[in-house]
Structure formats: structure tokens, C-alpha cells
Design a protein around this nucleic acid. Structure first.
Lengths: 133, 133
DNA sequence: CTGCATCCTGCCGGATACTG
DNA sequence: CAGTATCCGGCAGGATGCAG
């Protein structure tokens, strides 16, 4: 970076310069999307997230929630009852993102078959070795 | 996964079950978004991508392009000239995604300041150690 | 110009166990 | 219920060098 290359083809916007990248890396993290979507339906409890997001570990759920809270994307509300109860909810900023993320998952759902096919075709051509029976 | 937990709170759609996750992981990869956006303006050459996407290594550019090609999201056209010339372009499937990704980056740009502030505030509260002068 | 092969490192993220 | 702490393997991804 900053190797004196200020001139960039207008075609190739450097829209991905450092600051944006950092933000995107956050939202784009492996578990951020599922969490943001699950929390989009309203306040949700820790365990509900854990059970709702197939495959997530308690550790990553906690870590990702902390990061999202840190970035002001979710709020964390502790009810000092016993047993403890904690609810997570999207902030307005994150709620703006919800539609976009929904689009993303819908796109994935629409094309997941054709993508899988494309992948299989590619592998067969470029790596005609034994496909695991 | 598949640990016998079929019942899920309706609130927490398991929209993130395995197949979708795989697709999302691909698109959501660190360098996929910049590449898809840069290529969205039309066919683009390897070096243009390399110079346009600040911070990407030649290795990751190649790898990510291969994966995108494998999934049928970009096409690779080789012009047998000398020196060689290769152009990458989005497939229709990927072009559907372009608007969504643009939304994503615009959102990031809109909120990157407030997110940075939120982060700083959080750190100051939860980790009042020396902030790098 | 457009790549692939290799080496090497960090950190992502799973498994497990312990607390308030 | 809602976490935190620790250990540890795998792989994402940078650096470098070579090739068609």
C-alpha cells in the first residue's frame, strides 16, 4: 500500500480501501450474518441463538456477539433474575443492514443448486481423479 | 450438526443450515466482495484487479478468482496473445448479487465512522488500559 | 502479463471444563 | 442460563521465487 500508486483506473474503484474493509470483515465474519439475521426478528436470548444457529459453538457465539456489541450493532440487556436472562437486539444501524443480509441469503438459496453443479463440473474437468464414491 | 435437533424455535429460522452456509462462506470470503464489485463494471484484467484492490496478494487474487470461477460466478477468458491477456467477467448469477454487495459496501461507508466511535467507546470502558498515543 | 509452488505464521474456531 | 478460560489443530493468507 501507499507505494506511490495514486492513479487508479476509474473502472477499478478502490472502494475497498482500508476502513471499509475493516467494517466489512466484521459483518462478513463467519457467524455474523446468521446472528444478525436471527436477531432481526426481535430481541432474542443467548440460548435461543445457540440452538437456532446450527453448528455454532458457545465460544464463537459469545465472541461474535461481543464484537457486534463493540461495533454498536447489537445491544445486550441483562435481566438480573435467577437464573440470569440476557437478551440481544439489533441497533438501528444493524437493522438497516437486515434487508441486505436477507437478500444475500435469499440469493444463496436461489442459486445453491446451480453453484454446486458448477463446482462439480469444474472439479471433474480440472481434476479428473477419483471422486469420492 | 445433525445431532437430532430437528425442532427449532420458529423465531430462529435455521436458514443457515449447511448448504446455505457453504455458499455464503464463499461469497463472504475476505476477498470475494472486492473482486465481485471491481468486476461488476465490466470485464477486467488480472493486473487491473491486482492494482485496484488495495492490499490483495497475487496469490489470494488467483485463488479467489479460481474459486469464483469454480462456483460459476466469474468467467475467465484467455486471449492467446503475447504477452498473455486474461479477462474476468461476472456471470449472470453473480450479477444478481452485485446490487446487494453494493448495498453492503455503501452501508459500511455510511456507518464506518460511528462504528469506529462505538468501538473506541467500548474499549475505553471494558479495557481502560493505555490507548496507543 | 498471468499465474503456480513452496514455506511459514497467525488466528479462527472447535472441544472441553469450570464459574456466578 | 449465560458465560469465561484453556488447549490445540487446521487453514487462511502473506512472502518469495520460478515459469509459460
Amino acid at each position: 500500500m501507499s507505494q506511490g500508486n495514486t492513479r487508479v483506473t476509474p473502472q477499478v474503484v478502490n472502494a475497498e480501501a482500508c476502513p471499509i474493509r475493516e467494517v466489512l470483515d466484521r459483518v462478513v465474519g463467519k457467524w455474523s450474518v446468521p446472528i444478525l439475521i436471527a436477531a432481526g426478528h426481535g430481541p432474542i436470548r443467548f440460548t435461543e441463538l445457540e440452538r437456532g444457529i446450527e453448528g455454532i459453538s458457545r465460544r464463537m457465539l459469545t465472541l461474535t456477539l461481543r464484537n457486534l456489541e463493540r461495533d454498536g450493532l447489537v445491544t445486550r440487556t441483562v435481566y438480573p433474575t435467577v437464573p440470569p436472562k440476557v437478551e440481544y437486539a439489533l441497533t438501528p444501524v444493524a437493522r438497516e443492514l437486515h434487508a441486505t443480509l436477507t437478500n444475500l441469503t435469499q440469493w444463496a438459496e436461489r442459486h445453491r443448486v446451480s453453484i454446486a453443479e458448477s463446482r462439480a463440473r469444474y472439479d471433474e474437468i480440472h481434476d479428473p481423479e477419483q471422486i469420492p464414491a
